[in-house]
Design a binder for these strands. Structure first.
Length: 1157
RNA sequence: GCUCGAGUGGCGGAAUUGGUAGACGCGCUGGAUUCAAAAUCCAGUAUUUUCGGAUGUGCGGGUUCGAUUCCCGCCUCGAGUACCA
């Protein structure tokens, strides 16, 4: 009986579906194992042969683990919100839900026919309201959380509010916005609710803020950094520009360090970990402040650090002096304490800050202490104003009352101490340029500073002489798109601002420049330029003739900058001179900290992730606005369902598509979504307009693996019990393209959920494997096109004096054959392209292509006129690989008759030997390259088991490889041979199962050896995810058993189980024939027994000087000496030695013999 | 530029801690079977050769009795990233 794979496969696929064979239970005494594939997006193109590669691997592993006795969770679902469905909706007007539904249906059919062991009962879809209800729920949890830096975890926002009302915000260390205003507890409690909300928004883990975003006009939405490839959108390849917009953001930067640390605890491919490490981009260095010398030389007297007064200083200075001598009792007491330096910092009394005289100030710590007498009670408002201005000048202010100082001076000093421990560097602001540097050791090599043109200080510091040049430069660089700036790295440009900064250590004057090689978005948007140590600074200095001081001992910097670190000794650097790199670095930070102008800092490249998309097909935010401030809809009213709109385009006012929804207001009284009219006519009017943006594609995929654990839970996103049982994903398989998107966001959300005690694990995926991409083998044909015809034809006509008829003839010819003639690649060979291959695109041809001219002239006499003047171009175009056979011949008839190829109906192909041979190239498999191969055809022709084994056989899972069906027949005939092992030879009577035959007799030692060798190797291979070699092992096994004429049940039964993970359908069928009633899927995995492999003899390779010359069979228990004796006596040895005496004989018993001499 | 990965027959690829390089499959060649084809089976298939052998895992060196495997330097290809201070 022959192997009818189609029948067998359909039969078992139906059986599995009917019996829910792969349904996982949440209540099991078995050990759990969770195998997951990366969430598929159901695209309209369906699956191609590259997609199932990872699914097959994970399925083999899942089935293997079931045989091993594990309770396996192997679910599947769809990441069904996203851009392509929406683009399609815009083009066709079809609701994305409909097209998504159709796509999912097709995906499911394709998945089913490959025989995956998915537990479909747990299927989820991100676009299902029952699912996105929980995505919205998690969003609210993020909104209700802040990041406590000291505890290094997220905490509920309610706890932050408690802290604020008890002690203000000066002590709490939180991941928050940069421009936080310091306030005390009394101030907080005094703030209006709106002010409080605004402040809290600066601390929440998801927050609304105006940010520079990547705006893609064609897609009508913003994109995250990882959605942009080479300056254009990943989907569609449209240009992206920078734009300021108010957006929801995720404070992922708070987790930068933990995301980095966590990498060491997970078993992921190193390249993937590297790429996350790079993306997070941690760099250690120092934050240094360079005070600005307000005016360039000549215009004003040089100012020193303590000269903090404003332009009215000369008027106020005397008053300050007077006040110093007239201080109150409390002031005196405090001054005595401060001046005694008990606190370790220098204070000044009655000092000018701007236009104010403050009571006390610690300049290095930027801390102002004000002592309020009773008169100040009546002018609280004025004081607030004053505090604000002083804050803006970069100082913090603490106030104490007279009676506090007199009554409890220790408490006051304690408070001041706490304030002094705060961050030294004030918010980027007036009178100082903050820079971040990884090389504070090179600080004495600074010869100028460079700011990004967008830097907020530029306008303030530019002198009047330079104003014109500076604004011209800013304008110019703003116009340059991000892409241009990226492409053009070579051009050095910049302008001097006219301003100077003070070097914090050398006290020298440093010119301040602007240049667009400095990025506004990284660090502080300003750099201290060390031309001797940084190539960009070097180039800039060379270009503008700025000095390049050398601070590296014994290093030549006449040609280029020196960026080495280890082994470098610093010189010409004051107190750093003579120190090696590491020591100098620490010493520099230490000194900067002492004078309050710098401190050690770790910087991350990772930016907060923009979470808003101006699109329709995504999760709606559970947010409405009151007076412009976001309010969360109470969780019990979730899900907030995506409304219907009549068009999926932005509104006329430029609002996102949700702006078109008829009902999109939240009525806080009715607790429901209402129309604008209903909302406005409501008597109470509580509530507001709902958020018009939707969430990005990664929202739903950042937590979905938890949902599979408890997919039908209506009360929680996952129950504690289910989550604790399944923990996290044991094995995750997918492509490496998600390295910095999905995989980073998923880790972020998991850490957040862990912090808030909603899950018990801190990482989502324990082990991860990247399957390599399956590439397509594209086919190309070469088409001729006439260019600039009308212009050249009239010129030609004039030159050659064509008659009307001739001209008409030529015109007709062009009409008829333009874009219709195809030539083979061979004709394109000439001196320049000896292979006839000119890469991608098109190529102008003329008389330098003699072959073409000859061939064409033969066929079309008219064409000679064209060669005389009209430009001819050859275009290399993709042709659908389905029209090409294995020998690269194009099926011209099928090609011409295809409905999509109407334009080629009367095309002319230049054939050779009656064939048109296409050109082949390996490229990414994609619809646009017409090289997509679907699994459907292969399943029909060879069966799913063949497809599964063949995809594994193709090569190592992680490696990219081109798709090539050549080897398919080998795998298919292997399965046929396997089938034959269980059946008697074909001379037995034909008919149903009559030929099935296994014997119950004892198997031969050889067969046992073959079986156990196979068990050992295949098991090792599965554990190592080396599926290609296990397929080879099966082939060897079946070849050997066939040769042995093995038909023993004791061999064939375990073999069926062994192969079941790879070829489940045939295994099930054989299992049934072997007399079992249930599915093979949980049959016990065969146990490897070493005793069958024990050998008594070994075929020793005998080498001479390391080269194997012959083999010799010797007993394994033979000792070294005896082996040597036997080998030396062998005549082949004597022949090799040619009479010489060996210098040395190396014998590794059981391995090799090597004779040196 | 930087980071990572990979270079082995005509092709996909194998070789576990350094120990018989090219397993397994495709393709190709020859043969059997057949009226013929398909299917199946058998033999051969790195290069070179004076048929003894010699050479051979991108290139050059090193360590070792012995290197595809370890070390150093280079070349090529692929992936990621990119003015990151």
């Amino acid at each position: 009986m022959s192997y009818h794979f189609n029948e067998i496969e359909t039969k078992w696929q139906e059986y599995w579906a009917k019996n829910q064979t792969f349904k996982a239970s949440n209540n099991s005494s078995k050990e759990k194992f969770y195998v997951l594939d990366m969430f598929p997006y159901p695209s309209g193109a369906g699956l191609h042969v590259g997609h199932p590669l990872g699914y097959i691997a994970s399925d083999i592993y899942a089935r293997y683990k079931r045989h091993q006795g594990f309770n396996v969770l192997h679910p599947q679902g769809y990441d069904s919100f996203g851009l392509p469905a929406e683009q399609y909706a815009i083009q066709t007007g079809q609701h994305p839900a409909l097209t998504t539904e159709e796509n999912i249906k097709r995906y499911r059919e394709q998945l089913d026919q490959i025989g995956f062991s998915f537990d479909w009962s747990r299927q989820v879809r991100t676009s299902d309201p029952n699912y996105y209800k929980w995505t919205q729920w998690i969003f609210i949890e993020l909104f209700e959380s802040w990041y406590d830096v000291k505890a290094d975890k997220a905490r509920p926002i309610s706890e932050l509010i408690k802290i604020f009302s008890a002690e203000g915000n000066t002590r709490v260390k939180a991941a928050c916005d940069d421009d936080i205003i310091a306030f005390l507890a009394e101030e907080w409690n005094f703030f209006s609710s709106e002010e409080q909300q605004k402040i809290l928004l600066q601390y929440r883990l998801t927050y609304l803020a105006e940010t520079e975003v990547n705006w893609c006009p064609q897609l009508g939405t913003v994109l995250a950094n990882d959605e942009i490839v080479n300056g254009v959108s990943e989907r569609g390849g449209f240009p992206v520009v920078r734009k300021k917009m108010t957006q929801w953001s995720m404070r992922i930067s708070a987790y930068a360090q933990r995301l980095l640390d966590g990498l060491s605890s997970i078993d992921w491919p190193q390249p993937l970990k590297d790429s996350q490490t790079n993306w997070i981009g941690r760099s250690k260095g120092a934050l240094v402040k360079f005070p600005i010398l307000a005016f360039p030389e000549g215009e004003g007297k040089q100012k020193y650090g303590y000269m903090t007064g404003g332009n009215n200083s000369h008027l106020l200075i005397d008053k300050a002096k007077q006040m110093r001598s007239n201080s109150t009792q409390a002031e005196k007491l405090l001054w005595d304490c401060l001046i005694s330096k008990k606190l370790g910092y220098k204070f000044r009394q009655q000092h000018l800050i701007g236009d104010f005289i403050v009571d006390f100030v610690c300049l290095s710590k930027k801390l102002v202490i004000e002592v309020d007498g009773n008169i100040h009670d009546s002018q609280q408002e004025k004081d607030e104003e004053r505090t604000k201005i002083i804050n803006n000048l970069g100082f913090r202010v603490v106030r104490f009352r007279n009676e506090e100082i007199i009554g409890n001076i220790d408490f006051v000093l304690e408070q001041i101490k706490i304030q002094l421990q705060q961050d030294v560097i004030p918010p980027s602001g007036v009178r100082g340029i903050k820079v971040f540097t990884t090389r504070p050791d090179t600080i004495f090599g600074v010869s100028f500073m460079t700011l990004a043109p967008e830097h907020e200080l530029v306008k303030e510091i530019t002198t009047s002489e330079q104003k014109e040049a500076v604004s011209a430069y800013i304008e110019k660089s703003a116009k340059r798109s991000e892409r241009e700036r990226m492409a053009d790295v070579k051009t050095i440009s910049g302008v001097f601002t006219g301003a100077y900064a003070l070097h914090p250590l050398s006290r020298e004057k440093i010119p301040v420049w602007i240049g667009d090689y400095v990025l506004a978005g990284y660090g502080t948007g300003a750099v201290m330029s060390v031309p001797c140590g940084d190539q960009r600074d070097y180039d800039f200095a060379k270009h503008f003739g700025l000095p390049i001081p050398n601070i590296f001992e014994g290093i030549d910097i006449s040609e280029e900058a020196f960026s080495g670190k280890e082994g470098t000794v610093i010189t010409d650097s004051n107190f750093l001179t003579g120190l090696p790199y590491k020591e100098a670095l620490n010493k520099a930070i230490e000194e900067l900290e002492k004078i309050g102008l710098g401190k050690g800092k770790t910087n991350y490249r990772l930016r907060d992730a923009v979470f808003s998309r101006q699109r329709y097909w995504g999760e709606p935010f559970p947010v409405y606005y009151v007076n412009g401030l976001p309010q969360m809809i109470a969780k019990e009213h979730l899900p907030l369902r995506l409304p219907e709109v009549e068009k999926y385009l932005p509104t006329e006012e430029g609002e996102p598509p949700l702006g078109r929804a008829e009902k999109w207001y939240w009525d806080q009284e009715k607790k429901q979504v209402v129309s604008k009219e209903e909302f406005e006519s409501s008597p109470i009017g509580d509530g507001g307009g709902l958020e018009l943006n939707t969430m990005p594609g990664w929202a739903g995929s950042s937590w979905y693996w938890f949902r599979y654990m408890d997919a039908h839970n209506d009360a929680e996103f996952v129950s504690e019990k289910a989550q604790k049982y399944w923990e996290n994903v044991d094995l995750y398989i997918g492509g490496s393209e998600h390295a910095t998107g999905h995989l980073l966001y998923s880790r972020f959300w998991t850490k957040f959920l862990y912090d808030r005690k909603m899950v018990s694990v801190e990482e989502p995926f324990k082990k991860l494997i990247n399957q390599g991409m399956i590439l397509g083998t594209s086919a190309f044909i070469y088409r001729l096109r006439f260019i600039n015809v009308s212009r050249t034809l009239s010129a030609l006509s004039d030159d050659l004096h064509f008659s009307i008829e001739q001209e008409t003839k030529i015109e007709e010819f062009i009409q008829k054959y333009d874009n219709k003639i195809f030539v083979p690649k061979r004709l394109l060979r000439n001196k320049m392209f000896p292979e006839g291959d000119f890469g991608q695109g098109q190529l102008s041809i003329g008389s330098n292509f003699p072959e073409i001219e000859k061939q064409l002239s033969k066929k079309f006499p008219t064409i000679k006129y064209i060669f005389n003047g009209i430009s001819l171009e050859v275009q290399k175009i993709h042709v659908n690989v389905n029209f090409v056979n294995a020998s690269d011949e194009l099926d011209i008839i099928a090609f011409k008759n295809h409905p999509l190829n109407q334009e080629f109906k009367d095309a002319i192909f230049f054939k050779e030997n009656d064939k048109y041979i296409v050109h082949r190239e390996v490229e990414k498999m994609s619809k646009s390259k017409y090289n997509v191969v679907n699994p459907d055809e292969i399943c029909k022709q060879y069966g799913a088991d063949t497809l599964r084994m063949y995809e594994m056989f193709l090569g190592p899972l992680e490696q990219a490889k081109p798709w090539n069906t050549a080897g398919m027949s080998g795998v298919h005939s292997f399965l046929k041979k396997l089938w034959k092992l269980y059946h008697s030879p074909s001379n037995s009577p034909e008919g149903a199962d009559s030929s099935f035959q296994v014997s119950n007799e004892k198997a031969s030692a050889d067969s046992q050896k073959t079986l156990h060798k196979t068990i050992k190797k295949v098991t090792e291979d599965i554990e190592a995810f080396s599926f290609n070699t296990s397929v080879s092992t099966f082939m060897i096994c079946v070849n050997e058993l066939t040769a042995q004429k093995c038909d023993n049940r004791e061999i064939l039964e375990p073999l069926a189980v062994l192969i079941a993970p790879y070829a489940p359908h045939i295994a099930e069928e054989l299992w049934e024939k072997l007399g079992y009633s249930g599915s093979i899927s949980t049959a016990a995995y065969p146990i490897y027994e070493e005793k069958y492999l024990v050998e008594s003899v070994k075929l020793y390779p005998v080498s001479f000087n390391g080269k194997m010359r012959f083999t010799l069979e010797l007993p394994l228990d033979m000792g070294k000496e005896e082996i040597e004796k036997t080998v030396m006596e062998d005549e082949r040895t004597q022949k090799q030695l040619e009479g010489r005496t060996p210098k040395k004989v190396i014998i590794v018993p059981g391995k090799i013999v090597n004779i040196v001499g």
